[in-house]
Simulated assay, not measured.
Amino acid sequence: MSLKKATLLIILILLIDQISKIYIKTHFALNDKTIIFDWFQIAFVENEGMAWGTKLSDFITFMSDRTAKVCLTVFRILAVIGIAYWLKKSIKNAGSKTLIFAISLILAGAVGNIIDSVFYGVLFDSSSGQVASFLPEQGYDTLFHGKVVDMLHFPIWSGYLPDWIPYFGGKSFSFFDPVFNIADMAISTGIGILIVFNKRVFTVSEKPKTTVEA
């Protein structure tokens, strides 16, 4: 895959991700839900920290939530720079199409969520109890303190587990609880490809290219 095609893929994913998030922010109040099917819902939540709703300050107790959020966002930006370099190097060295595709997905997803974290605090006002406005006079927070917008929920099954299951038996259980977004899907898919297709992904051409293909 050429650099041009990889760039187009990244832009496409970013557009879908941001359009869906802006639509949710400007049409749903926080915690609003629309049931599409029994197993698929649009449920608007905002993520202030890392995956699964955790925060960096949960692990570094001496750090305030706001400081930890800025540190996490800066770390993500540095990670994106590293992933972008990995993508460019893989294309230059004629890496497999599968590898370049996977890296492009991860990069697009990471950038998509960084946009929320960096800019959404000033681009929107609060969604609590109301539908947010785009480009208000004053946003709900400052730069680098935005919240990531999630909306895709797949409550495929919920109920009580059989008593014979050790430890978890007889307890209420639901699958799948996390709410996520297009950027999360891109990152998860890219990582999944790297794991499942490991041998194909890291196959190197016999004649590496010396220049980046445009």
Score class of each variant (00 low, 15 high):
D177F: 14
I35L: 08
T211G: 00
F134H: 07
G109D: 06
S128M: 09
F124S: 00
K25C: 11
G146R: 02
I165W: 14
S57R: 01
G112I: 05
T7Y: 13
D184Y: 07
G112M: 08
S2N: 14
S20F: 12
S96P: 08
K207E: 09
F62M: 07
G95R: 01
T203W: 14
P208L: 09
V212D: 00
D184S: 11
Q18F: 07
E213Q: 12
D17N: 08
F144T: 04
H27L: 02
S90P: 09
F62P: 04
Y23W: 12
N93D: 13
D32H: 12
D32T: 09
K97G: 10
L9W: 11
E206P: 15
I77C: 13
I106D: 05
V45W: 03
D150S: 09
G53I: 08
L12G: 04
G49E: 03
R66W: 03
R66H: 05
G95V: 08
F101M: 12
F28W: 15
D125P: 07
T34E: 10
K5P: 03
A43R: 13
V70W: 02
G146H: 11
S158P: 02
A102C: 09
D38Y: 13
D32E: 15
D141L: 01
A79C: 14
K97E: 13
D125N: 15
E137H: 12
L194W: 04
D17E: 03
I165S: 03
G169H: 02
M1T: 14
Y85H: 07
A186V: 14
F59D: 00
T7N: 03
F202P: 06
G169K: 09
N113W: 14
T61E: 10
K21F: 13
A186G: 09
P178W: 08
G53F: 09
I81Q: 02
G170R: 04
K21H: 04
I60N: 13
I193F: 10
S2C: 01
F124R: 09
L72T: 07
G112W: 03
I16G: 01
S172K: 13
I24G: 03
W39G: 00
F37Q: 03
L8M: 10
P155N: 00
V122L: 12
A94H: 15
V149P: 05
I11T: 02
I91F: 03
L9Q: 12
I91Q: 05
V196H: 00
I106Y: 12
T98E: 06
I156Q: 02
